[in-house]
Design a protein around this nucleic acid. Structure first.
Length: 286
DNA sequence: CCTTGTGTTCTCCG
DNA sequence: CCGGAGAACACAAG
């Protein structure tokens, strides 16, 4: 489930791999994912170059010509780059990667660049999408996102403002993309645990100290997750087809019934909160 | 039934 | 009564 660290890992990878490459051909296997007019989508993209690979929250924004290709991976989307063509005809250039993570029955779209390297999007559940937009539409979409936790404008002052006149539970605030961009279910739980705060706390009851701690911890958790190239439970792969390594650094998510790694006495519990499965330590989160 | 990301819809409150 | 907040629901597919 790609959240900020996973999408950022993909963005960094693609920036190295597909920048300035010209799209030679596009094969659309699952048309459902293309949210723009099919013919216009193909007509515009083919022959144009990738100028930039950006990200806002969990959304990738590729600058292509004078337009923008938005790519959202939702839950099971993958974007994998390949600069060899051999695997298509059977062989595989990277033995450590299973061939089926590159191209398989969930492959939705294949971009082929000049020189025959490829960008392959897979999506098992077909929740993801690709959408071609102009500058105005792009800016409208970007404007809806909240602060990026790793950008310099994520200041303590701005962060504190989020909590003014709000009463929602902390987890709902963390998941709200219009307030803070990029946090999903896994990192919301990790952040609450790292801050020793119960995710169901009403944010108007948080102390200044707790908010300041959250501010630090959000950046710490997200940065560490990027360092380890994200969390792979099952589907997530980076742009090279590799799994992320952050699972072994998760402190609460997916640890229901296991001993808390901090207090080492209480078992991690799970509840439903803000409509999502939520993991927490009833002992050391207050 | 569950899973999560997101968009919509509805209710409530000041 | 308007506007915003927040919760609830819907939807995607396996």
């Amino acid at each position: 489930m790609p959240e900020l660290p996973e999408v950022e890992t993909i963005r960094q990878g693609l920036s190295e791999k597909i920048l300035h490459k010209k799209i030679k051909a596009i094969k659309i296997i699952k048309p459902k994912l293309v949210k723009s007019n099919y013919n216009e989508f193909l007509k515009f993209l083919v022959g144009n170059k990738i100028n930039k690979v950006d990200r806002v929250g969990k959304l990738l924004i590729l600058s292509v010509g004078n337009k923008y290709l938005l790519i959202h991976l939702k839950m099971t989307g993958q974007l994998i780059y390949s600069d060899t063509r051999e695997f298509i005809s059977g062989g595989h250039p990277f033995p450590e990667i299973k061939a089926d993570t590159l191209q398989n029955k969930s492959t939705a779209i294949i971009f082929t660049f000049t020189g025959n390297s490829q960008l392959i999007m897979n999506d098992q559940r077909l929740f993801g999408y690709l959408k071609l937009v102009n500058k105005e539409e792009k800016e409208e979409i970007v404007a809806k996102f909240g602060i990026e936790p790793l950008q310099s404008d994520f200041t303590l002052e701005k962060f504190k403002k989020i909590f003014i006149r709000r009463s929602a539970v902390l987890k709902a605030i963390l998941l709200n993309q219009q307030l803070i961009a990029g946090i999903g279910n896994i990192y919301a739980d990790e952040i609450c645990f790292a801050a020793s705060i119960m995710p169901d706390r009403r944010v108007n009851n948080l102390s200044v100290k707790e908010i300041e701690n959250l501010y630090k911890v959000i950046q710490k958790v997200i940065a560490k997750a990027i360092k380890y190239k994200g969390t792979t439970f099952k589907d997530y792969r980076d742009s090279s087809g590799q799994a992320g390594n952050f699972v072994e650094h998760l402190k609460v998510y997916g640890r229901k019934g296991l001993k808390c790694l901090r207090c080492k006495q209480t078992e991690i519990s799970k509840m439903k909160l803000a409509g999502r499965g939520t993991h927490y330590c009833p002992n050391c989160q207050k």
